[in-house]
Amino acid sequence: MTDTPTLLLTFSGWCLMRIPTDPDPTDEPRGVSGYTFAYANEPDLDRIILFHPEEKFVRWPAWQAGPDDPENKGAPGAAPGLGVYVRAARVLHGDNVDHTLPGLVGAKVDLLEGPKLENRNWLLTLPGQEPIVPFILHISNDRGVDILRKNALDPDKPDQPVWKASAAALARCAAAGMNPEPDMVGRSTGIWDYVQKNKDRRDALVSHRAEIAAKPPYPDQENELAILDARIKSIETGLENPTSDRRIFMTQMVERFSFDILGFDAKVSAKTEKFIGMPVECDAKTGWPIGFWIGGWDPDLLAAHVEGSVRIPLTSS
């Protein structure tokens, strides 16, 4: 550990991943042979990881959470609040916490420009071993905090598209596999019993459907009912074989990422540095180590929990 001061930002929250699933083609827009679907008049599956999704992508009972909102409403996994935020901010000198930065807590963490898990039906990497491309980390709040860093798979070829990237470049930023970590998922999301969570979800959807059906007719009612019917059916199908059906057991899986964000200049607003009290190392060659996991996958909502931290080198001068 060096004496170089570091800004450590810890973040977590629920995101959306509107992805088709194998054996569907990676660019399958509606979902056919996998276990994720775009129903009725819902937008196409676009593969984009959305840390702060627009309302049109959000399925009931998920909701758009703000920085001060709980990550779940009600029982664990009942109604995930979508949104990834900084939960803690510390300046470290070596192993010592020099000071904390409450002003950065609650800042919005985002990935910009359509980040996608890129394995392309096992063409680029095996599933669970794919990188997220593009990876443009953006941390901001309405008080002038603005931190942006764009990763290059291969810093020597920053403009090379992912489909031309070498195996080594892909591996540098790849996830380290997709593995069951029920303890990690349980501690972070409260979801310890993913079978029960799915039963609860099914029951909630059935009740919600009855409420909608009882309303006087309105324009989108038929579509909403069809979507709920399809979702209920999908969960029930999964519950027939909970230990082998991906839409159920994948909840316990975790995909871990750990790499240095490298390449391209970082951009940090002057106000951010004022908050921190020190300038940030912004040159293209200084990596920003980031480690996070995505897991607790909820195929019904197309939502997943994300949790991790990024270390941003500071200049002590």
């Binding site: 056919v32 009725a40 008049n41 579509n223 069809a226």
Partner: peptide, 25 residues
Amino acid sequence: KREMTEGLTAAELDKVRGWRSTIML
């Protein structure tokens, strides 16, 4: 057909999606 814009209701589309999945299997 894949989309409601192709002249299917939401309920019809869901059935057709299921058929497509079955045929692919």
